[in-house]
Computed example of a mutant assay.
Amino acid sequence: MTPHVFCLVSERDDLSLLHALADAGVDGFQVRAKTLATGALVALTRAVLTAVRPSGALVVVNDRLDVALAAEADGVHLGADDLPVADARRLAPGLVVGATCRSRAEVVTAAEAGADYAGFGPVFATASKAGLPAPQGIGAVSEAAGVLPLVAIGGITAETAAEVRAAGATGVAVIGAIWRHPDPVGAAKELVAAVA
């Protein structure tokens, strides 16, 4: 099942809040820590798993199939420059495989390669990742919906999450809407309510 709220987690975030976030209804966590050495990334992934698995949340690792397998995570999320989706599916047939997509055509390609969901965006402007293309807007979500479950990402807030869901997204992925909020757990509860 594709999560309704994916929270991206790095080594800079307050890991002591993970259990509370999962209890608040965040049902997916993506470990994304691009600068960590492999051993540290495995350890971070295991810490996330320990904190959120009791709540039944899904845990995927960004970019790194090897780390997902070593840490016994639920899956991997792959970008355009990462291991191809078809190779990840062949190497780890039991894992959830997500793919970053920026158009309906890319979603179709990801589906044909065996992806389970598409991370789609950026929908709105975001300060969480540099070098992204221009925000695509709600219309792009509607256009891309219906091929794979879509997880919309990029500038999503509790205020816009319901709109994104109404446009056809299965769920949303967030960083700043939780981690840069003064009350991360309260913000998570608002997001969960908005996408219910």
Rank of each mutant, 00 (worst) to 15 (best):
V9N: 03
L91E: 02
A105V: 09
L91D: 02
D66P: 07
A166T: 03
P122K: 00
A37E: 15
A173H: 05
A43V: 10
A73T: 07
N62H: 14
T2Y: 05
D82T: 08
F124C: 08
A22W: 01
S103M: 04
W179T: 09
A169E: 12
G186H: 13
H19C: 14
I178T: 03
A162S: 14
V147T: 11
V141T: 09
R102S: 12
L8S: 12
V59T: 06
L132I: 10
G94T: 10
S142C: 14
A118F: 05
R89W: 01
V123S: 06
A118G: 02
A125E: 10
L95R: 01
S128W: 05
A194N: 08
I178E: 00
V48Y: 10
G121T: 05
L132N: 00
A169I: 11
T35C: 07
A152W: 13
C101I: 03
L148F: 10
L95T: 04
V9E: 06
S55A: 15
P133N: 06
A161W: 05
C101M: 07
M1Y: 03
V174T: 01
V26A: 09
V48R: 10
I153H: 10
K34G: 02
A188S: 09
S142W: 05
L83A: 03
A187G: 01
L132E: 15
V61T: 15
C101F: 08
R64E: 09
V5N: 01
T100Q: 05
T100L: 08
L44S: 11
A177P: 04
E190V: 09
I138H: 08
G79M: 06
V96N: 11
S16F: 01
I156S: 04
T100K: 00
S103G: 04
P133R: 05
D66T: 05
P54E: 14
S142R: 15
G98Y: 06
A187S: 07
A196H: 11
A33S: 15
A33N: 07
R90I: 00
L8W: 03
G56C: 11
I156W: 12
P133A: 09
A37R: 13
T38Y: 08
T170P: 02
V85Y: 01
V96T: 11
G94Q: 08
E159R: 07
R90G: 00
L95V: 04
L191E: 04
L69I: 13
V85E: 00
A118P: 03
F120Y: 13
R53L: 15
R104G: 06
R89T: 00
R12W: 13
A113S: 06
A43W: 12
A86S: 05
V31K: 12
D14N: 15
L15G: 14
A115Y: 01
R102M: 11
E72C: 13
P135V: 00
L18P: 00
L41Q: 04
